[in-house]
Simulated scan of single mutants.
Amino acid sequence: MTNKISDNKLTKEQTNELLNVLKARFVKNMHRHEGHEWAKVQEKLDGNPEKLWSLNEMERTGGEPDVIGFDEKKDAYMFCDCSAESPKGRRSVCYDREALESRKKHKPENSAIDMAVSMGIELLTEEQYRALQDLERFDKKTSSWVQTPADIRELGGALFCDFRFGHVFLYHNGAESYYAARGFRGLLMV
C-alpha cells in the first residue's frame, strides 16, 4: 500500500493487503459505523476495483480511511479519512488549480482539489466535516480544506475547518495560501 500504483489498478497482493488493513480498522473502530457488517462492506469493495484503488491512495497519503456511514439513497458506504490529523501526504497544498497558478513565488507542489480528483475522491463539505467530528475528534493540531461555495471562491477565498477549544471552527483564507499543518480530508462512496 505504500507504493503508488501507476495504472489505477491494484495487484491481487496489494488488494488483499489493503482489505486486511481496512477490515482491521473497521473492527477496531465500530463506533464509526455501528450496525454495519464488514462482510457487506467487502462485498461492495469486491465489485469496485477502481474504488479500491482510490482507498489505497487515501491510505498511501496517510488518510486512514474507514466507513463512517451508509447512504440509503445511493446504496453506498461512505469512506472518509479518519487519521487523527489532516493526512500527512496531503498537506502544504493550496485550495485549487486557479489558486496554485496565481502564486508568483513559493508555489506548493499541488492543490487540494487537483489531488482529490486524481485520487477519485471528494473534499468534505462543512456539513460532512462537522458530522465526522461527531464520531470522534479530528484535527486538534492541523486543519483541513473543505468544499468552498462558488461565491466565496470567486472572490479569491476558500474555507477550512479544525477542532479547537471543544468546538469545530470554520475559517476562511485566500485560496492560494498553504501551510504545513493544513491538508484535506476526502470522502469516497462505495
Score class of each variant (00 low, 15 high):
residue 2 T to F: 11
residue 3 N to E: 11
residue 4 K to D: 09
residue 5 I to Y: 09
residue 6 S to Y: 12
residue 9 K to F: 06
residue 9 K to H: 07
residue 10 L to N: 05
residue 13 E to C: 08
residue 15 T to V: 09
residue 15 T to Y: 04
residue 16 N to F: 05
residue 18 L to P: 06
residue 18 L to Y: 03
residue 20 N to R: 02
residue 20 N to Y: 13
residue 23 K to D: 00
residue 24 A to M: 09
residue 24 A to L: 09
residue 27 V to M: 04
residue 27 V to E: 02
residue 29 N to S: 07
residue 29 N to P: 10
residue 30 M to W: 12
residue 36 H to A: 14
residue 36 H to F: 13
residue 36 H to D: 08
residue 38 W to T: 06
residue 38 W to G: 04
residue 39 A to G: 08
residue 40 K to N: 14
residue 41 V to C: 05
residue 42 Q to F: 04
residue 45 L to D: 02
residue 47 G to R: 04
residue 47 G to K: 14
residue 48 N to T: 14
residue 53 W to A: 03
residue 54 S to P: 00
residue 54 S to F: 02
residue 54 S to R: 01
residue 57 E to D: 00
residue 59 E to A: 07
residue 59 E to Q: 12
residue 61 T to V: 12
residue 64 E to T: 06
residue 66 D to W: 00
residue 66 D to A: 13
residue 67 V to M: 02
residue 76 A to N: 03
residue 76 A to E: 03
residue 78 M to D: 05
residue 79 F to R: 03
residue 83 S to P: 08
residue 84 A to K: 13
residue 85 E to M: 12
residue 88 K to T: 11
residue 89 G to H: 00
residue 92 S to W: 09
residue 95 Y to V: 07
residue 97 R to T: 11
residue 97 R to H: 14
residue 99 A to D: 06
residue 106 H to A: 14
residue 107 K to L: 09
residue 108 P to W: 00
residue 109 E to C: 07
residue 109 E to V: 12
residue 113 I to G: 03
residue 113 I to C: 15
residue 114 D to Q: 08
residue 117 V to E: 06
residue 119 M to A: 15
residue 121 I to T: 13
residue 124 L to I: 06
residue 128 Q to P: 02
residue 129 Y to L: 04
residue 130 R to I: 10
residue 131 A to K: 08
residue 133 Q to T: 01
residue 134 D to C: 11
residue 136 E to N: 11
residue 137 R to Y: 08
residue 137 R to G: 06
residue 139 D to I: 01
residue 141 K to H: 10
residue 142 T to P: 04
residue 147 Q to D: 00
residue 147 Q to C: 11
residue 148 T to R: 02
residue 149 P to D: 14
residue 154 E to H: 08
residue 156 G to R: 00
residue 157 G to S: 15
residue 157 G to A: 09
residue 160 F to Y: 13
residue 160 F to H: 03
residue 161 C to N: 07
residue 167 H to Q: 14
residue 171 Y to D: 01
residue 171 Y to F: 14
residue 171 Y to V: 07
residue 171 Y to W: 05
residue 172 H to R: 13
residue 174 G to Y: 13
residue 175 A to C: 07
residue 177 S to N: 12
residue 178 Y to L: 02
residue 180 A to Y: 04
residue 182 R to C: 04
residue 182 R to I: 01
residue 187 L to N: 11
residue 190 V to A: 07
